[in-house]
């Protein structure tokens, strides 16, 4: 017998619930989870901010799209080299152009078809040399102090990982009170036709492996900044609209 069937056979001997029982049991557990999650978390933004700060993140806020460029300017250094998510919202209000006036700016994708060729080792360096990656989060979890990002045609996994600074924009409307409230979003993103990588980011990369002394920037970004935008239009998911303004370093 192959390993799979062997293991399944052994396990099925000890798994005796009928499908109906199992569904009912799980339903009951979900009810309990919902009951546990019910708390009075009316003021999400202050809690989100407080928890992010406690996790070692930096937090900035702005009113709407028209203020994003200015807010990012105040977060970024003048000669930071940046990589921007390939998101149409960066074209709005001239955000991408304004940012790239001062500094070297790259977009996510190297090739014209919107894809990076993984066998081309160059793409790794493409991000590694950059100082900051700027992405759009699809949601935030106030209680945990974390944002949810996901790999998509316009947003790579690496841009929130390889540069020393990661800046995530999140719409105040996309804040969830708890992880349980965010579960449907996480579940829908994680489907087989969804994203290969959904990541909850709760702070800068860090370690305490040496005598429990906290050091940031272990492998990933040393700084993690969340820019809360109070009114932000929803993003076009799976949009691969190329940016109108970008320069290649």
């Amino acid at each position: 017998m192959n390993a799979r069937d062997d293991m399944m056979k052994k396990l099925s001997l000890g798994s005796r619930m009928s499908a109906d029982q199992r569904i009912a049991d799980l339903q009951h557990l979900h009810d309990r989870l919902r009951d546990l999650s019910g708390g009075d978390l009316a003021e999400l933004i202050p809690l989100f901010r407080e928890r992010l700060l406690a996790n070692g993140a930096e937090v900035a806020e702005c009113r709407d799209g028209s203020e994003i460029a200015e807010a990012l300017e105040s977060i970024l250094g003048d000669d930071d080299r940046i990589v921007l998510a390939d998101d149409a919202r960066f074209a709005d209000h001239d955000i991408a152009r304004k940012l790239s006036e001062k500094r070297e700016t790259r977009r996510v994708c190297l090739s014209d078809d919107g894809n990076l060729a993984p066998e081309n080792g160059g793409w790794k360096q493409h991000y590694a040399g950059m100082d900051a990656g700027i992405t759009f989060a699809v949601g935030g979890v106030a209680e945990s102090g974390a944002v949810i990002v996901h790999a998509s045609p316009g947003e790579s996994r690496s841009m929130s990982l390889l540069p020393m600074h990661h800046i995530a924009l999140v719409s105040a409307e996309h804040l969830h009170a708890t992880l349980l409230d965010a579960a449907p979003l996480i579940a829908s993103l994680s489907q087989r036709n969804g994203s290969s990588a959904v990541t909850l980011i709760g702070g800068p990369s860090k370690t305490a492996d040496i005598e429990k002394v906290l050091v940031t920037g272990m492998h990933g970004p040393k700084r993690f900044t969340v820019l809360i935008v109070h009114q932000l239009p929803a993003g076009q998911q799976d949009s691969s609209t190329p940016l109108s303004h970008h320069t290649e370093g």
């Binding site: 994708c109 993984p118 793409w123 790999a151 790579s156 996994r157 969804g194 290969s196 990588a197």
Partner: peptide, 13 residues
Amino acid sequence: LITGPKRSTEPDG
């Protein structure tokens, strides 16, 4: 949360 390998439309992974 990793579901499958990189999708063909995703830039990296």
